[in-house]
Design a protein around this nucleic acid. Structure first.
Length: 346
DNA sequence: AAAACGTGGCG
DNA sequence: TCGCCAAGTTT
């Protein structure tokens, strides 16, 4: 039963495996070659809730700057956060550093799912993925792709997230003892290229015959999901001060909460009616264009205030730095882009 | 256990 | 134009 599924999928994977900077191909792997656990772990953390296309350049930059987990462990926090800027879910970057330092202390990555699971930023999915892909252990690996594939294969109509335990159990039963690393990547490739969310290509699927949802015509409607809550709109004010020498007044945000540990503009809270709170007295000028941004759970409309600050400026909050705009999280960069236009015309 | 936590692309 | 979606984890 188990091998009937894995054999057909692995045969498909041998022909259609996608190549990625952190992967080794099925041919190399069968010769006993295994991928570098550091690169597998780094890619898996970057890929949490994030598309392959978005991750690729970040992965290449990180591995160029920090080729080993020891290099990453020795990096400065601010440098890692700056390199992560734009990828989102910044707790991942803070936990990435913690994890790298724990692993450097241990001497190497744990080679079991249980050992990996104990590290910061590694949950059930990432522990299973690294254990199977890097160490060829037959651990169950359940991401969004696998949930979709299993819900269709077994025509499970229970909505997520309630269906998660059942989908995990089904996935566990199919996980083979032979080539578990290739198998884990194969199911995810299947979900990403054939068993897609909207219009699955059932006609060319290696599992088209046993798939219950294909037989019953329910595939496009699965998996079902419980409806999401609507997003409220919040408002805020950002103060972008540029000193005459070109330095910008920025703050490092507290580690906890939204955009934790990232650079940002001094400003109000983000609420229904924020109060003005200039970080230093100056002729603050409201920009006509606002920065619009949508976070996971709310929309934000950000008013951008700009001012040119004198050489001896001594602000109540923040510090002046020679700003590299790419080190800002996206919402802050949107505000910067609006301000930069203003400063250019000054 | 529900909510917090980013961003860009696509139909 | 806009909601949905992408290799989830933490609290």
């Amino acid at each position: 039963m188990r091998d009937r599924f894995s054999d057909s999928l692995l045969a498909w994977y041998d022909q259609h495996a996608r190549t990625m900077p952190w992967r080794i191909g099925p041919t190399d792997r069968r010769q006993g070659i295994r991928p570098d656990p550091y690169r597998v772990w780094l890619s898996e953390v970057m890929l949490q809730q994030t598309t392959v296309a978005a991750v690729r350049d970040y992965f290449l930059r990180f591995t160029t700057l920090w080729p080993t987990v020891q290099d990453l462990a020795a990096a400065r926090d601010a440098d890692v956060m700056a390199q992560w800027a734009g990828l989102g879910y910044y707790a991942r970057a803070r936990n990435l550093l913690k994890c790298a330092r724990d692993v450097a202390e241990l001497g190497a990555f744990p080679d079991t799912a249980e050992g990996l699971r104990a590290l910061p930023g590694i949950g059930p999915y990432t522990a299973g993925a690294v254990a199977s892909i890097a160490f060829d252990r037959p651990e169950v690996v359940v991401d969004g792709n696998v949930e979709r594939v299993m819900s269709r294969l077994f025509d499970i109509h229970t909505p997520l997230p309630a269906a998660k335990p059942e989908l995990t159990e089904r996935a566990r039963e199919l996980t083979p003892l032979d080539r578990p690393g290739d198998y884990a990547q194969a199911v995810m490739d299947l979900g990403a290229t054939i068993c897609t969310p909207r219009t699955p290509a059932c006609g060319i699927c290696p599992w088209r015959d046993p798939c219950l949802a294909r037989q019953r015509g329910t595939a496009p409607d699965l998996p079902r999901k419980t409806p999401k809550k609507p997003k409220p709109t919040r408002f805020g004010i950002a103060y972008i001060g540029r000193r005459v020498d070109g330095a910008y007044l920025v703050e490092t945000r507290p580690d906890k909460g939204l955009l934790g540990g990232m650079l940002g503009w001094p400003g109000s809270d983000w609420s229904e009616s924020p109060a003005p709170c200039p970080p230093t007295s100056a002729d603050w000028q409201a920009q006509s264009q606002v920065a619009q941004h949508t976070f996971t759970h709310f929309h934000l409309t950000l008013t951008v205030m700009t001012a040119t600050l004198p050489a001896g400026c001594n602000p109540e909050r923040g510090q002046f730095i020679d700003l590299v705009p790419s080190s800002l999280p996206t919402v802050m960069r949107k505000a910067y882009d609006i301000a930069a236009e203003q400063f250019e015309t000054d």
